[in-house]
Amino acid sequence: MLADPALAEAEGCDAAEPRPGRTIGYAQGRFHDLAYVEWGDSASPHTVLCLHGLSRQGRDFDPLARALVGLGYRVICPDIVGRGKSGWLADPELYGLPQYVSDMAALIAHLGVERLDWVGTSLGGLVGMVLAGAQNTPIRRLVMNDIGPFLPWAALRGIGNRLREAPRLHHSLATAEARLRSALRDFGTLTDAQWRAMTRHSFVPEPGGTWRPHYDPAIAVAFRPGRVYNVTLWRDWDAVRCPVLLLRGETSDLLLPQTAAEMTRRGPRATLVEIPGCGHAPALFDDGQIRIITDWMGRAG
């Protein structure tokens, strides 16, 4: 259910802190939980939905959400099915873009908004692109963080390899953090406190004092050897009509320079900003990176 601002105030809740929410999605004869956190005033007429990347979860957007709340926005940060606090799918073959698009459409309906802005990192940007290009889309502005309509197979293979090689259990949170720092080094320079915060939301405690990644290992099924190839979604990109801000990590191997340049020339003709010191994908923890988005979006209203 949507949070009631009056109830939140009565219970002493701070609108500047995240509040858990939940709805449901549907896949092949079975419903599953879709978890999200909500920031800001639920009565705000301007909503931003922030969607994470392939093996991440919604709390990656905490710093950006706080900044957007300060500008008057209501912010929704979901966990894609199979990640974070959302449910897992019974059939791993269903982990893919069509399911994620369907689930986010269900979430938008649950939120009861006619219009919203979208910020998507990597996979979250692809989901936003497909929805923004649909007829009668509710998306009025789109921020795509280091993703585009052409995905080279070599970069996808690397992502799949890292997923398959990730340890299923860690004996301490310290070893889990070390693994995260290595796997996500292309996110850019983060402080120790930021790495700790990311680690806290990226691993789940297990009996016996071990820690497991927050996601269903079966999300890697789509990246098995022999199933990875170039992905082209230019038709979806060309269907987008809303304004688009495109962020690219300086050394990204997933959003190639030529792809980003082409996105500024066709379809919605994105505004491109390249972010130095990182690859795929900018973490959006840094004040300067956050300011790029908030300056482009402006105050709610």
Rank of each mutant, 00 (worst) to 15 (best):
residue 112 G to K: 05
residue 93 E to R: 15
residue 114 E to M: 02
residue 119 V to C: 07
residue 96 G to F: 08
residue 80 I to V: 15
residue 124 G to I: 06
residue 84 G to E: 12
residue 112 G to Q: 02
residue 86 S to W: 06
residue 125 G to H: 05
residue 91 D to E: 12
residue 97 L to K: 03
residue 80 I to K: 04
residue 100 Y to Q: 10
residue 96 G to C: 07
residue 81 V to E: 05
residue 99 Q to L: 15
residue 88 W to C: 14
residue 86 S to Q: 05
residue 117 D to G: 09
residue 126 L to A: 13
residue 84 G to P: 10
residue 95 Y to L: 12
residue 116 L to W: 01
residue 89 L to N: 05
residue 117 D to V: 00
residue 91 D to G: 03
residue 99 Q to N: 06
residue 102 S to E: 11
residue 101 V to P: 01
residue 105 A to Q: 14
residue 103 D to A: 02
residue 107 L to A: 11
residue 119 V to W: 05
residue 103 D to W: 00
residue 114 E to C: 07
residue 80 I to F: 08
residue 117 D to S: 13
residue 104 M to I: 14
residue 115 R to T: 12
residue 113 V to A: 08
residue 102 S to Y: 02
residue 103 D to S: 03
residue 95 Y to E: 06
residue 126 L to C: 04
residue 101 V to S: 06
residue 108 I to K: 02
residue 101 V to E: 11
residue 113 V to M: 06
residue 114 E to N: 12
residue 87 G to P: 04
residue 81 V to H: 06
residue 89 L to C: 11
residue 94 L to V: 02
residue 124 G to H: 03
residue 127 V to D: 03
residue 102 S to K: 12
residue 115 R to A: 14
residue 90 A to T: 14
residue 105 A to E: 14
residue 86 S to N: 10
residue 103 D to N: 03
residue 123 L to N: 08
residue 93 E to V: 13
residue 125 G to I: 02
residue 105 A to W: 09
residue 85 K to H: 15
residue 88 W to A: 15
residue 94 L to W: 08
residue 102 S to R: 14
residue 111 L to T: 08
residue 91 D to A: 10
residue 89 L to Q: 08
residue 107 L to S: 08
residue 98 P to I: 12
residue 113 V to S: 06
residue 121 T to S: 15
residue 112 G to V: 01
residue 112 G to N: 01
residue 91 D to V: 07
residue 127 V to P: 01
residue 95 Y to W: 05
residue 120 G to T: 04
residue 116 L to D: 00
residue 93 E to M: 12
residue 87 G to C: 12
residue 99 Q to H: 09
residue 115 R to I: 00
residue 107 L to C: 09
residue 108 I to Y: 03
residue 101 V to W: 10
residue 99 Q to D: 00
residue 95 Y to I: 10
residue 94 L to T: 05
residue 117 D to T: 00
residue 101 V to G: 07
residue 101 V to Y: 08
residue 103 D to R: 02
residue 118 W to E: 01
residue 127 V to W: 07
residue 83 R to P: 01
residue 82 G to H: 03
residue 84 G to N: 11
residue 88 W to D: 14
residue 98 P to F: 08
residue 109 A to M: 02
residue 81 V to I: 14
residue 105 A to H: 09
residue 113 V to F: 08
residue 105 A to T: 08
residue 123 L to H: 02
residue 127 V to H: 04
residue 115 R to Y: 02
residue 106 A to I: 01
residue 105 A to L: 12
residue 105 A to K: 11
residue 126 L to W: 00
residue 127 V to A: 01
residue 119 V to S: 06
residue 104 M to A: 04
residue 105 A to C: 05
residue 115 R to N: 03
residue 102 S to F: 00
residue 98 P to T: 08
residue 110 H to E: 15
residue 121 T to D: 04
residue 120 G to L: 09
